[in-house]
Computed example of a mutant assay.
Amino acid sequence: MTGLTPFSIEKSDNFQRSFKKLAKFHGSSFVEVMVEIIENLTEEQYPYNSRQEPLPSKMQLTEGWTFHKLELRFTKGASGQIRLMYLVNVTTCTIRLVWIYSHEQFAKRPGEKDLKSAIAEILDC
Rank of each mutant, 00 (worst) to 15 (best):
M1Y: 11
M1W: 11
T2L: 13
T2Q: 08
G3N: 14
G3R: 11
G3P: 11
T5K: 12
F7D: 03
S8P: 01
S8K: 14
S8Q: 14
I9M: 00
E10S: 14
K11F: 13
K11N: 10
S12C: 08
D13Q: 13
F15K: 02
Q16A: 06
Q16I: 13
Q16Y: 06
F19W: 12
K21A: 08
L22P: 09
L22M: 09
L22K: 02
A23D: 08
G27Y: 09
S29H: 12
S29Q: 11
S29M: 06
F30A: 04
F30E: 05
F30M: 07
V31E: 11
V31D: 03
V35T: 15
V35F: 08
V35D: 13
E36P: 00
I37S: 04
I37F: 07
I37Y: 08
E39Y: 07
E39F: 05
N40W: 01
T42C: 12
T42D: 03
Q45S: 09
Q45A: 08
Q45C: 12
Q45H: 10
Y46H: 14
P47Q: 02
P47R: 06
P47N: 02
R51W: 04
R51F: 08
E53M: 08
E53W: 05
E53N: 04
P54D: 11
P54W: 01
L55A: 02
L55S: 01
K58V: 06
M59T: 11
M59R: 04
M59P: 02
Q60F: 08
L61C: 04
L61H: 02
H68G: 04
K69T: 15
L70I: 10
L72M: 08
R73G: 05
R73C: 05
R73W: 02
F74C: 06
F74D: 03
T75Q: 01
T75C: 01
T75D: 01
K76W: 03
G77Q: 01
G77P: 12
S79T: 15
G80P: 09
I82R: 00
R83A: 00
R83C: 03
L84M: 05
L84S: 00
M85F: 04
M85N: 02
M85I: 12
L87N: 04
L87Q: 09
V88A: 07
N89S: 08
V90R: 10
T92K: 12
T94E: 14
I95T: 12
I95A: 03
R96G: 08
V98E: 01
V98M: 02
W99P: 01
I100Q: 00
Y101D: 05
S102H: 02
E104P: 01
K108I: 10
K108D: 03
K108N: 07
P110M: 09
G111I: 05
E112K: 10
K113R: 14
L115M: 15
L115Q: 11
L115N: 03
I119R: 00
A120G: 07
I122L: 04
I122G: 01
I122C: 02
D124F: 07
D124I: 14
C125H: 10
